[in-house]
Write a protein that binds this DNA or RNA. Structure first.
Lengths: 351, 351
DNA sequence: ATGAAAGCGCTAACAG
DNA sequence: CTGTTAGCGCTTTCAT
């Protein structure tokens, strides 16, 4: 039932070669013949078989996206961005979700899927091992990472250390000196560098203000809301004084923390200032001050670079540091009793 | 550089036919030869070319997912579910995002992409036109819809009318009689039936309790948080009495409404009860009472049915109504001054 | 159990 | 401007 190029050729009284040229808009085909061929193709409902042309050309016209998750903000937005750029061209998007950071990686990298299925690959928030990278390079497909730097591979990302510094400095500028830190960075993150970079940015900002991070206010999360809630519980339940502000490495964790604070009657920002990174879709409604980044755009840029490279523009793939900026909302304010650097604990709330 | 089946055959001193059988685990190949072939293939890093086998067999071993969005909860979770099921087998997932409900549809359905690229298709929350459906059937690929019923096509979904009824009845059982309705259903939803079904469920529940929907408390949204916020603003800013409860057709809208209520000092649930549908990841942290559904599971089920059908189990694709249930949290409570059916307005807040 | 050979549908020289 | 002719890499009868 599927109509092939031969059918069109027969119907139009030309060779398959001419049909091929006509359909693809190649030069050297008489306008009249082309018109006739197109008409026939249309009438017959002809669509070229992608596998056949892939086999003949070696090009798949599809771009792969490998990601640890699809159902988290950064990832979903990125994928949407890649897709948006691709659908403007005629590329397809083959999605590989790992369902976590560490799982199943060699299914992809060690000689399987990827190869021969895609023309280029975008890697979301994954730190590739030297071996994986080597394998990918051996395959010789254009490659771009997103969401953080990857050694030996161009990427599209914000300056994570800077983002963390800007956020922290905003708190410091407001007068905060007792600042907790809710960071990502559990081991299953497969030593992806982003958690580390944000931590460095936080600590650097603190240091510049003559402050040091407090171990008792160091909270580990995994970037999810649920984890933000749990971290908040640990923080609020712990004995000892509370901080006057919390820097969260992601908005999702910040929002979790805010929910828990609300539940306990801890007022934001009067009792506690909270800042995040991302500008998640819930951040504006929640009034969360944050550092905005735009993964939709990152995805579009990454896809564009890949397609340009494939179209023969060498050097189209460039390491790219994307824009970010502080978005002031209502979750941050000066501390009620501005603490001096060596006095603290007076803000402790009675719950 | 890419090693082909011929290379393996040569190296193992067998024909390509034997290599093909050996690799695919087909019977009628000597265990010893098979072992040798596998060893050679492994040593050479051989991977079969998908396009070549697709061309030869007519099977692509990839399943398509077409969706209006990837960056919203229901869609992202569904896609994750489909992917999860597929990666347990050896199918790939080709993702087509429309970037909205109405956009670009014929790029997909009218003789383009889909055809010859995928073995089966899952359609997320899209109501197909008769023409689109006809086209899809003509292509003869297994098809399953998700997220709502689609005439002429099996789907995996909850009973939306029932979900809305259960939610509404929960409010009524608590003593509410002044219930607002924040529903989806703007025209760009491409007349997808879900908004309508949920509205019907809401109104049916009201009717059973001898209540009628109030036009002034009928709020239109589009399922997003941002829209929930705007709807809440309209509700709270309007002159006249406020309802004592709001039934929201999605958690995302309910959460937006809650954020806006918080901002205005309207207390949930003391001043206003709120219930949603979904059990979004933010609902538990926010304490939102809701009707839970599990799109991750829906996606897995849909993918499983498709693969079974492709594996030769006729009738594997069945119309499926998935589980749902009421999850009680802290956003609903009895109204402060239980209103009688014909007295209202006394709950109006002084803002 | 294995091989020979045709063919899947398209593209890419090379002729003309 | 158009047709002929090889493949692309795999699968699949049909022989042996």
């Amino acid at each position: 039932m599927p109509v092939s190029i031969g059918d069109v050729a027969a119907e139009a009284n030309v060779s398959t070669a001419t049909v091929s040229r006509a359909i693809r808009g190649l030069p050297r085909v008489n306008p009249a013949t082309r018109a006739r061929i197109l008409a026939v193709a249309d009438a017959l409902g002809y669509v070229a078989s992608p596998s056949a042309s892939t086999l003949a050309t070696g090009r798949t016209r599809t771009i792969g996206v490998v990601t640890p998750f699809v159902d988290r903000w950064y990832f979903a937005r990125s994928i949407e961005g890649v897709d948006k750029a691709l659908r403007a061209s005629t590329y397809n998007l083959l999605l590989f979700s790992l369902g976590g950071f560490a799982k199943d990686r060699d299914r992809l990298f060690n000689r399987n899927m990827v190869r021969k299925q895609i023309d280029a690959l975008v890697v979301l928030c994954l730190s590739l091992t030297a071996e994986e990278l080597d394998h990918l390079h051996r395959i010789e497909i254009p490659l771009i990472a997103m969401g953080g730097p990857v050694a030996g591979c161009a990427s599209v990302r914000i300056d994570d250390a800077l983002a963390a510094s800007v956020a922290t400095e905003h708190l410091i500028a407001l007068g905060h000196r007792d600042i907790a830190h809710l960071h990502g960075g559990r081991q299953d993150d497969q030593n992806f560098t982003v958690p580390r970079l944000r931590t460095e940015g936080f600590e650097a900002a603190l240091a510049r203000a003559g402050l040091r991070p407090r171990p008792e206010w160091d909270l580990t999360g995994d970037y999810t809301v649920a984890n933000g809630v749990r971290a908040a519980q640990r923080l609020f339940d712990a004995p000892g004084p509370l901080p006057t502000a919390v820097f969260c490495a992601s908005d999702e964790m910040a929002l979790g923390l805010i929910f828990e604070a609300n539940r306990r009657g801890i007022r934001i920002p009067q009792d506690l200032s909270v800042i995040g990174i991302d500008d998640h879709e819930f951040s504006q409604p929640a009034g969360l001050t944050t550092i905005r980044q735009d993964p939709l755009k990152h995805g579009m840029v990454a896809a564009r670079m890949l397609m340009d490279e494939l179209d023969g523009l060498p050097g189209a793939i460039r390491d790219t540091v994307a824009a970010q900026h502080l978005v002031l909302r209502s979750s941050t304010a000066p501390p009620r009793n501005p603490a001096s650097s060596d006095s603290f604990g007076r803000q402790t709330l009675q719950l």
